[in-house]
Design a protein around this nucleic acid. Structure first.
Length: 261
DNA sequence: GTCCAGGTTTTTA
DNA sequence: TAAAAACATGGA
């Protein structure tokens, strides 16, 4: 489907975000930075003329160039990139990315989206028409663990509150993390309870747009073993994060590749 | 009922 | 150090 909406779907449906939904008519709606957006084939080009959304959808980055560079490295990587070539890495809110991926552990994407929706409804600012912003860290720092467990968060509840407190109190400073080298920033984030290397790398890639971050979840571990034996994330270079997203999306849609893994 | 889901922490050997 | 087990919940 080589349409604007088809291209957009690759970005919104590749597992990097949890606050966007495809409606029955194929249009998309979601909330970011407290702004609601409904995207249709008709309004899409206008949306991208809005500097705010153009930045959110990362329209200023040369993905064609990045993709070409990655495709030259390896034919398997080229095949993965070809499966969803129009994927962009969204510029999500750092706290939303950190919090969402804390929720993602030992969980599936559908349920993560439901949990994020309940969190926003319970603690986020009402932006009208039954829609809610992602809650501020300052708000969740004051939340009750039992209340979060009542939302179905399970063992993740204390992790969310603990991380929220660290952000609210400035012990985690996203502006500082943004300009740190990857490894250093990862070490800071993994100091949080409930944040290991995978959640840290998701935060760095999706929330702080560090393109060299390479989140290693179960799918990526399988993919590395089967599709890229002997290689490690640094082999993919400064845009490893984009490669990761191609491979993750491709792998999830080709589970038969890993039946013997 | 059993298994698994974009992990991490705690316990055990 | 490294491998299990525990951590909660809901859907298949």
């Amino acid at each position: 489907m080589n349409t604007l909406m088809g291209n957009l779907a690759q970005t919104l449906d590749c597992g990097q975000c949890f606050r966007w939904d495809r409606l029955q008519d194929g249009t998309w709606e979601g909330v970011a930075y407290g702004r609601y957006l409904h995207i249709t084939e008709e309004n899409f080009s206008d949306v991208l003329r809005d500097p705010f959304w153009a930045d959110y959808f990362d329209m200023g980055t040369d993905y064609a160039g990045i993709r070409a560079g990655l495709c030259e490295k390896d034919s398997t990587l080229a095949e993965a990139a070809h499966y969803a070539p129009e994927i962009h890495i969204l510029r999500q809110e750092p706290w939303e990315a950190l919090c969402s991926f804390i929720l993602s552990q030992c969980n599936n994407i559908k349920r993560i989206k439901g949990m994020a929706a309940r969190l926003c409804r319970a603690y986020g600012r009402n932006i009208g028409n039954g829609r809610f912003a992602f809650p501020e860290a300052e708000t969740l720092a004051l939340a009750d663990e039992g209340d979060l467990r009542a939302l179905g968060f399970g063992f993740r509840a204390p992790y969310v509150i603990s991380a929220a407190k660290s952000v609210a109190q400035g012990r985690i400073d996203f502006k500082a993390l943004k300009v740190m080298p990857l490894k250093e920033a990862r070490d800071v984030l993994t100091g949080l309870s409930g944040v290991g290397p995978k959640v840290a790398d998701c935060t760095l890639l999706y929330g702080l747009h560090k393109m060299d971050a390479f989140p290693m979840d179960v799918w990526m571990k399988r993919a590395m073993k089967v599709l890229f034996p002997g290689k490690d994330p640094s082999w993919f270079g400064p845009y490893a994060g984009v490669a990761q997203q191609y491979i993750f999306h491709y792998s999830r849609h080709h589970p038969e590749l890993f039946q013997c893994a």
